[in-house]
Design a protein around this nucleic acid. Sequence first.
DNA 1: TTGACATGCAAGCAGTCACTTGCCTACAAT
DNA 2: ATTGTAGGCAAGTGACTGCTTGCATGTCAA
Lengths: 93, 93
Amino acid sequence: MSDVFRAIADATRRAILDELVERDGQTLFEICGRLTMKHGISSSRQAISQHLDILEAAGLIIVKREGRYKFHWFDGRPLEALTKRWPTEPREE
Amino acid sequence: MSDVFRAIADATRRAILDELVERDGQTLFEICGRLTMKHGISSSRQAISQHLDILEAAGLIIVKREGRYKFHWFDGRPLEALTKRWPTEPREE
DNA sequence: TTGACATGCAAGCAGTCACTTGCCTACAAT
DNA sequence: ATTGTAGGCAAGTGACTGCTTGCATGTCAA
């Protein structure tokens, strides 16, 4: 649970989630390329890989291995509890 | 915007928000006491004060000064954009 | 005005984090 | 078998973070 907060605390990881929401099932190299192209993030492959590990540990992405490829899917379910934790609308006094 | 993610990334700050949602308008000392009692958090006054600064910078709490007291109110509006950023329900393939 | 109370400011410290670097494993094609 | 591709593992580094410590400011009561 605390891992989810920690996972989305980083801007690069949030960009990865944005990217996976837009196009599911990407590989590590695809994600690297798209982050550079569209989000202006130029991190190394290892850096992105470590971010993916953290996102996976938080349950925010699901990984499937096929041959030498590793595909990544977004999973927003851990965010449900998060969005319900605090009220977002103004309350009466 | 990024400040909001950073602000809620810390467990102590999340506990402070929980506490303020439950009981609005507390002072620094009240918050310290309640965190110790109810959440088992035993941080110094200065530590809590620094957390409150971060929460205020993120717009998650509103501060009102009266005499030598400083009261804190929860404000969940910055969380709205956050909760709408990613889908939380399973999507079709 | 003196002392107690509520809070602020700033430097220092230890732990964590993101990132790099270098090397290694596994699969696929020629 | 060799080469290229997709990814993994682990140690090291610089920066950031949360916390403490010590002192200062401002407010109220006696």
